[in-house]
């Protein structure tokens, strides 16, 4: 049965890509998250992580997002969190990575 990942086709336009996350973003889904993150990180666009519906974010999930951030930041592109849920905020603060994963002002 197909996993519940839905990755859209990449378009080569430099508008921000949106990575939409919801539910449990943890080690059980981390491979799907990685695929989605890789897809987002492949182009030359900044990335917005829409995470208002995230119920749980653990170190494994956070690690993937940090790797994505690291990759984009190395080519001077942004990764921002949009409307982060409590779970996301708590994880980011706990790990002390607010500067790697800043919050989008338009949240």
């Amino acid at each position: 049965m197909s996993e519940d990942t839905n990755v859209g086709i990449a378009e080569r336009i430099e508008r921000p890509r949106t990575l939409r996350l919801s539910g449990a973003v943890d080690v059980s889904r981390v491979r799907a998250l990685l695929d989605a993150a890789r897809s987002c990180g492949a182009g030359r666009s900044p990335v917005v992580i829409e995470c208002s519906a995230v119920e749980r974010l653990d170190a494994a999930g956070l690690q993937v997002l940090l790797a994505l951030a690291k990759k984009l930041q190395s080519v001077n592109l942004d990764v921002r969190l949009r409307s982060p849920s409590e779970a996301v905020l708590a994880a980011v603060r706990l790990a002390g990575v607010e500067s790697e994963l800043p919050i989008d002002e338009r949240s």
């Binding site: 080690v27 981390v30 491979r31 998250l33 990685l34 993150a37 890789r38 990180g41 170190a59 494994a60 690690q63 993937v64 940090l66 790797a67 994505l68 690291k70 990759k71 706990l94 790990a95 002390g96 990575v97 790697e100």
Partner: peptide, 24 residues
Amino acid sequence: RVRSDLSSLPDLDALDPEVCYLRF
């Protein structure tokens, strides 16, 4: 105060998501 050390974090394309590369 927590600092995450990401120095061992490999490139996104080489990352194995089930391995922990973080250090706190």
